[in-house]
Design a protein around this nucleic acid. Sequence first.
RNA 1: GUGGCUAUAGUGUAGUGGUAACACAAGACUCUGUGGAAGUCUUAUCACGGGUUCGAAUCCCGUUAGCCACCCCA
Length: 500
Amino acid sequence: MTKKKNKNNKKKHLIKRPKKIQVRRENKINNNQFQDNAAPVIVQHKKYLPKSLRGMEDILPEEGKYWDFVLQKAQDLAEDYGFKKIETPVLEERVLFEKSTGMTTEVVEKQMYQFTDRGQNQVALRPEFTPSMVRAYIEHGMFSLSQPIKLFCFGPLFRYERPQSGRLRQFHQINLEVLGSDKPVSDAQVILFCKTFFEVLGIKVSIQINSLGCSECRKVYRSKLINYFKSKRNRLCPDCQKRLIRNPLRILDCKQEGCKDLITDAPQIVDSLCENCHSHFVKVLECLDEAEVAYELNPFLVRGLDYYTRTVFEILPIRTEVVAIKKDSKLEEKKEGENKEPLPADKQVEVAPVIPSMSALGGGGRYDNLVGELSGRETPALGVAFGVERIIEELKYQNIRISKERAPKIFLAQLGELAMRRSLKLLEDLRKEGFRVAENLAKDSLRAQLEMANKIGVKLTLILGQQEMSDKTIIFRDMSSGNQETIDQEKMIKELRKRI
RNA sequence: GUGGCUAUAGUGUAGUGGUAACACAAGACUCUGUGGAAGUCUUAUCACGGGUUCGAAUCCCGUUAGCCACCCCA
């Protein structure tokens, strides 16, 4: 196990446990004792230790800069591309997802957080964005606005899965939808957005594309596929044997070696596309070529949600990995994927991702029937979603530098009751003048405050003490030279402008 | 949902049967108006529960959590 992993592991145990106690399970036992026994059992009070739920993480200040970075880039870019921001509730009617995401999908069947609320309504925490977007589109009559409607949103989603890296129970996506256009150019524009987005972030990615066709071509392809696999059924893994009946397209996604061999020679959906779908797909690709978007055709790309039609795509990170260097056992370990620490540049060799649809950073596609099925009004549409946690993980993995936050260059140190109180107002004045000033008003000792100023790395420390309060002056201390000057408070702003 | 590995101060680690060590971080003090130096102290009954043993961080079982693979997906 790598250092990195251990680190994560331990972060979960940040909580310092008080002596001789703990764990909620014990609380439960105690409760039961009270219920079951007539005579009250006197138990030592077990202290409750707060803990986040499994698969749900806090975004600590240290992480915050990555989030700001990713979200800001996404929002700026989405606005450039003409997407309007929308926010919808986290909670929706359960049927919405059953009818859109699909009853038979794993997401709805097994992973949805669902419950009956106090008003006896069947509700669910959204496991994905598209249904909510479509619901909002229908509910607010957006079809009567000028089409297409381009929506952008960001927020938490919930799926009850077993957590793993890049897989949380509460996770976040950035989501874009284009509703009301069947034009291939819309597909191309969304994919172009993906390309640009990752370019702006600095992440190297591969864009994989396929077409699933409309329901008609899919029917044809489905039977072709079933025919092909039927005779080879015994060579399929048990999961795929089940898929053969329920959802044969998903076999194409299988990673079992035996199945993979069979998949290579399986019929490809491109060959089964009807004329319309085929020409649509070709036009999408032509648009992409025109826009100089590099993509890879992946005939075996199938997406997990029921509503997809025609164009589907996924964004996979291109990671740099070591090509085996036998003598070095450490490197060999890394090759086995045990260690994901980045390696020195001279030892890296670029390798395209071997397994598609693993750890996709984003994915999406067209869903031409969904709006119609929910509203009765045929409305072609498409969308894309990006996993924010995965993007951040990739930023770290690819060692991408995040532009620094606006670090304060000034520290205000105060000494004594009077100065401390005055500082509150002084900081406010400085802020209004556009200066970001660090402080620690809670500390009394000047030494401690200077120590902190030093640690933060400010250029200048302002010192306000009893003496200065009565003289209406303030001390400017240059942190690198240690030189000090006493300045009239009235001239302070002017002097600061000169020096910062 | 299935399988495997792991769990020691805030962080990173040492400690493989004889009651916890080191580094860094943080806080306090030496020093109640001057930082980048030094020193001292503080911060862990070794995830939780049980078992084996004279004795458990160490061995065994269970639980929980994390990681990895499957599954699923962003």
